[in-house]
Nucleic acid binder design. Sequence first.
RNA 1: GGGCAGUUAGCUCAGCUGGUAGAGCACCGCCUUCACACGGCGGGGGCCACAGGUUCAAGUCCUGUACUGCCCACCA
Length: 884
Amino acid sequence: MSQENLPKGYDPAAIEQQWRDHWEQNKTFTPEMPAKSASYSIVIPPPNVTGNLHIGHALNLTLQDILCRHARQQGKTVLWVPGYDHAGIATQNVVERRLAADEGKSRDDLGREAFLERVWRWKEEYGGNITRQVKAMGCSVDWTRERFTMDEGLSRAVRKVFAGLYKQGLVYKGDYIVNWCTRCHTALADDEVDHVPQKTKLWSFNYPLEDGSGHITIATVRPETILGDVAIAVHPEDERYQHLVGKKAILPILRRPIPIIADNYVDREFGTGAVKITPAHDLNDWLIGEKHKLEVVQVIDDAGIMNAKAGPFAGLPKLEAREKVAAEFEKLGLLAKVEDYENSIGLCYRCKEIIEPHISTQWFVSMRPLADKAIAAVPSRTQLFPDTWLKTYYHWLDTVRDWCVSRQIWWGHRIPAWTCGNCGALLVEEEAPQQCDQCGCAELQQDQDVLDTWFSSALWPFSTLGWPEETQDLKTFYPTSVLVTGFDILFFWVARMMMLGLQFMDEVPFRHVYIHALVRDADGRKMSKSIGNVIDPLEMIGKYGTDALRFTLTAFAAMGRDIRLSEERIDGYRHFVNKIWNASRFALMNMPADGQLAPLDPGRVEGIHHQWILHRLEEVKADTLKSIGSYRFNDYAQGLYKFIWTELCDWYLELIKTDMQAGGEKQTAAQYVLWTVLRETLVLLHPVMPFVTAEVWAALPTPDGKPATDIALEPFPAARPACLKAEAAAQMSMVQEAIVAVRTIRAELNIAPALRLKAIIKPQDDAAACVLESQRPVIEALARLGELVIDVRAAAPRLAANQVASGNEIIVPLEGAVDFEAEKARLDKELVKLEKELAMLEGKLANPNYLEKAPPHLVERDRARVDELKDAALKLKQVRARFA
RNA sequence: GGGCAGUUAGCUCAGCUGGUAGAGCACCGCCUUCACACGGCGGGGGCCACAGGUUCAAGUCCUGUACUGCCCACCA
């Protein structure tokens, strides 16, 4: 881009693509190794390979990118590792559905090998999708280190960890009642089950007692499981039933005698206080069954169909059986009552099928020892931001149950366990064993199951850095600096990374965890395809540009609070991008024609407007460091927004227009200061708005006249203490107030903006007069004056509009057809305002306790303000009197 | 049932260690002023959910109440 032909409106599309390509081709974000400076690293939360980028990713990626680009500016050796996740069930479902739709085949028709080949093929074809979307966001990841949870290195890490845990005694195989998805045909972890409320019925049935002495009534929402009942439980201290404990009841329909047992799990208040026990189909019943050594009778198979043990109902889907069993009870006259009832039901988080508790043999990871380590490491070694999540984190780890890690699907890391076909020995090894270590035979059969997707994700912070090899990356970048993630996967992922990182690296996986909000729609609802309120980041990028999207998300990313996003907001911040663009155009138009700036020491520049903006720049630099350093992203974005729009553009650019026209030294000084401020501001803004800043940066003259550098490699601007000039800043704001006073008078009295007014400023003292005088051309230009008198002894004309600003009296003589009534009203309004504040302050100062106990400087400040207000009020009253 | 947030201008939200409130959008008026109408200038608008308490002083700290949202939990 050359500086002559910057177009008037900013057009993101072409410019962004150019920079994406530039950064990727130049490997700009591949860190130099071995690292010559402190390291800073982040691993990307790997998006699903099947996935599309949603707005939550966009937020997540933007915040990480800000941190990485900022760390680079601070001279750190930065690595941001990109990658994606194989997403076991999700991906398998996608490919299965496609297979069914295109060829009418199931995965079983193909067989394991052929099906997996299809999944890989699918992944090659569509896996790049998510990568392209990450690239669109402008993420400064190192593409040369892109990883996939199923690639060879990571797969090896998975096997090594699994075998390692086994050898440490932390992995075991056992029968357990698990959450079973009858559609995905696999076990699910507790976390993978969504609970939703449902309206159903609560049936109460009578079970006759074996000795014919009556019946006992139980309540259930699942009559079909009655066929698997093995006991009835009551509370041990429940007088109603104590005499029945030890007796037997007859399970109707199947006419099986079942014992009545006592267990304090039973809630006496609920229903009849007697509960049927079906260990095969309910978690609690399973636990009670274990305790009381009850038989397990499974009546529903792994597809959700009643099996042979269900007697007359065999072959029916469970929901049909439910109705039929209830009807049968009614026919037998054993239905006590039916009520409407609401409870919650578990759904598969992938396919939304109802979860069926199901007994099967699964692999488990013992969580207790791992969880204890993860608890101990927080917050001393890993800090959470915001720390309101601490309790949640601890609570989950305190109550965590063993992790069921086996899944009965095909796509994923196959469990590295082998059973000997000869002696039945179980071998768990990192690499496939050649022969049984017990009997030496070679008939080894590998376990059919694969591991939970989250198992490989749990290793992500070290597996992506090359573990188990002792790579330079691992040494340099582990532990990572920060993990940026949404709270929705705090348990799924963060806690498990903590556990396995500590177990295998002896070190936490990250020093900080920044937990960001959820992005919701404008009405606070979760975005979902079914509601149709999804904001697609790619569509937004196309419409408004990536910088606008990123800035919007950042500006609303207040810690610990959800973001309500609407398209109008993104559009709003697009205006800001355009504003920056146009301010930059102005700057470029005003740079010296040859691009050679006369060097200047910013600390010694004359002119309070320059001193003021340089002073503010220093403050903004410090604020930026503080905001990003403490993860206050909204402060970071909004601080820059305010500085750029209201200070740099609305004031400073206007202030220097007279300098630019004046030529000579005034012009060269203005050029240099503008150039300095704009350049440094661009660097501050770059982490959140990489594209527009890169483009403008490249167009600006360079200090040495050489071709422009890449702003992505530019260090954070060093502090310039010599530019901190609070006094100049205060003087400047006095001048601004004088200008605003004239403008207010003009607007409120409906004086045409084009009319060159006469104004008289009566400064409060000689010092003020001197400052105002030095800014005469600026005041005349910005207040649009034809004539300006600055005089401490000035006498106001009889009829004049009047305003007091910073102790200076601003007088606009009213001539011609000016609305005197409007001026009177304006003065009254002004007076009311003054007197209100005065009353408040005087009340405060009348309080002896305040005078005695408040810090003296505050009392002083209030007294000074009272004097100022009194003075202003007096002046206004005098003017007001003339109108009366 | 337990836990955690939130309740500030019409809307969406800032307000960190206490000194009687800010932004963006929306709204009203004026303006095609030579970077920008994706703009400029000016303006209106809030007893900071409610009730107590601590304090010279509370949106800001403490207690309680009421709603809203989220997370966790085995009540059949």
